[in-house]
Design a protein around this nucleic acid. Sequence first.
DNA 1: ACCCAGTCT
DNA 2: CGACCAGACTGGGTC
Length: 549
Amino acid sequence: MSAIAFLAADPDGYALIDLRDQHSGSLLQPVTPVDAEAFPSVVAGLETQHSPRWVMLRTDPWMRPLIAAGVHLAKAHILCLAQRILHRSPLASKELEDFDLERPVQSFEPANQDALFAAPSSGESLSEIIAMYLSQREALPQDPGPGQRLELLIHAESVGALIACEMEAAGLSWDEAGHRALLREQLGPRVSDYGRPPKLAAKAQQLATALGTPGLNPDSPQELLRALHKAGFAVSSVRAWELEQLNHPLIAEVLEYKKLSRLASTHGDAWLDQWVKNGRFHPHYVLGTVTSGRWAASGGGALQLPHSIRQVVRTREGSTFVVADGRQLEPRILAAISNDQQLQKAGQQDDLYQWLLDAKLVASRNDAKLGMLSVIYGGGGGASGAVGAALTRSFPTAMRFVEQAAATGQQGGGVRSFLGRGCPPADEQWLAGQKATSDEASQRAADSAARARGRFTRNFVVQATAAEWALVWMGHARHLIHQAGWSRICKQVFFVHDEIVFECPTGLAPQLQEVIRHAAMLAGRTLFGQASPRFPVSVAISDNYAEAK
DNA sequence: ACCCAGTCT
DNA sequence: CGACCAGACTGGGTC
């Protein structure tokens, strides 16, 4: 018997819990009002007794107190995330309204100042929660195949939301003193939060003099470009990759300045003050906004943590990181969704690119990688070059699959991930542009927009399915860790698209490593069945994130 | 508000 | 011949 628990705001208190049998819909106990103090223990009790799927509008505000009290929820259904998925999915049997994920969370406390502005409904009353859930169930396709896929996607997305909350609470172990020392060494003493740090200011001075432009602000692309022209450098922009081509000592100084300036502005003292507390970095993960289903992060730029700063991501004595990433995840996903047997065969090796080398289809591993990425991103260079030709010959089924996705998008159609996440439809402006053939320029713009949409849909089918695999992988890992009884000591602390970082006691790391590999195998089977292609993961154990590669 | 540049996958 | 080429967030400059 499976149970389902609706979690709603109690207008007269804190929370209402409505526990039912999933299939009959009958109440398993009277609807229970719970105050904030008792909330974690009541939820923990129900979790132990019934292990229900917890239905809530959002993880906010419920998960914070639960996690603080060490309560683990195995299963969830996060309505706002499910709503977005069902709204977009071409598999849905009924059209559902979108949910505005940006909408600020309303306080449950009635506004104490002015009753006039107290909303009559928070959108989180028990009846609203149940109604929303039922309409979502109705939108699941009758056909069990697609129905199970969408249901799996909703469950995976929901457990992802729980994991995001757990990671936010746990934080990423950060060597703050080491970080400060690194800043002092490269930027000089901290004198003020305004203006440049001493060593950076000196470098700016030195550049201005060397380029013969007194007062130059090297942080201004316009000023810097003019100064470089004046000094005789023929560049069209001040992008680092363009400047690097010049190979000139003065340019090297410019590049050095840019590097320091970036460190100071994005990971300087102010960043540490704001984001690192008690030796841990607490970013905020944002789900449901990226169309492909990948996560975003707001605050601290968690998903763009530069490699150059990862040396200060360290565990305390006694703990270690276990860092796992899906090896060549996207090509393997492409092999699975296109059912390209040859590409799946290449994927039997831990290093998929090695197969291309062994078959003498490419001159180097890097060529293999670039060619494959180009196929997935939609670059013309990949398919038209020598490597692209080799890939097309070797993996015609996979190539046809991405070409088909591109063609659909280019014509204004939509595509979906393996589990049924739909891409956004072509917008009004795009459609209007396709009809405007008044002159050559607008036609060119329309063609360019059409190709851009083709590249987007081509990439979408792979990226969105890769995101699903990663969610399911994380979900299995979380489950296995809980089953092993390690939840309290072994925590997921970071996630970047296809890479997961755990922190655990050093002695547990080898066992955790096996659990992560097993979870990856399960993820493949959960999505693609017993005949799933291989999804090898590389796992490194280190107390320093920079060294875990 | 938008551009530019840099960071990650 | 050369431009074509995925998804994000952040900070500083510019208008």
